[in-house]
């Protein structure tokens, strides 16, 4: 029960080569304004760097933003590496230009939720609070 009450810690990162960081930064700020602890890792992160930071920072949730189309490579890799590190309790969420079909597939593979353009930050905050 004590764990549930603690402030959510969220790592926000931009994996891969894509530099479009508007969405990631807006979401990071909205999570912070909602009272969460946010670690914004910034751009050009490899899955290894993301997983290492998630473990080091002891976060509850990892949020990844990808607009370059590399989502089918990056999300499974991060999930796999979290499992390898025994950290599969860390939930992975994401957002970006991701077609419906790929959303369904990635959610089957273990991504907790993917948010596509038009999502309100309030919905993202509510979802992260609920997991």
């Amino acid at each position: 029960m004590a764990e549930k009450a603690r402030t959510k810690r969220v790592l926000v990162a931009k994996p891969g080569l894509d530099g479009h960081d508007r969405g990631a930064k807006v979401v990071a700020r909205a999570l912070r304004d909602a009272g969460m602890e946010v670690i914004y890792l910034g751009l050009h992160q490899t899955p290894e760097q993301i997983v290492q930071a998630a473990v080091d920072e002891d976060v509850d949730v990892v949020g990844l933003s990808i607009l370059s189309g590399a989502h089918m490579t990056v999300f499974p890799r991060v999930l796999e590496m979290l499992r390898e590190r025994g950290a599969s309790d860390i939930k992975v969420v994401g957002g970006g230009i991701i077609p419906d079909e790929d959303v369904a597939e990635l959610e089957r593979e273990g991504v907790a939720r993917l948010f596509t353009p038009g999502t309100s930050t309030a919905d993202i905050v509510d979802f992260i609070r609920s997991i």
């Binding site: 891969g16 080569l17 894509d18 089918m72």
Partner: peptide, 21 residues
């Protein structure tokens, strides 16, 4: 993205990004 960032298609950072956007 790899071309934009000056990386070859067989660079480790290019994985999953080749020809995508």
């Amino acid at each position: 993205m790899p071309t934009i960032m000056g990386r070859d298609s067989d660079d480790a950072m290019s994985e999953g990004e080749v020809g995508r956007c």
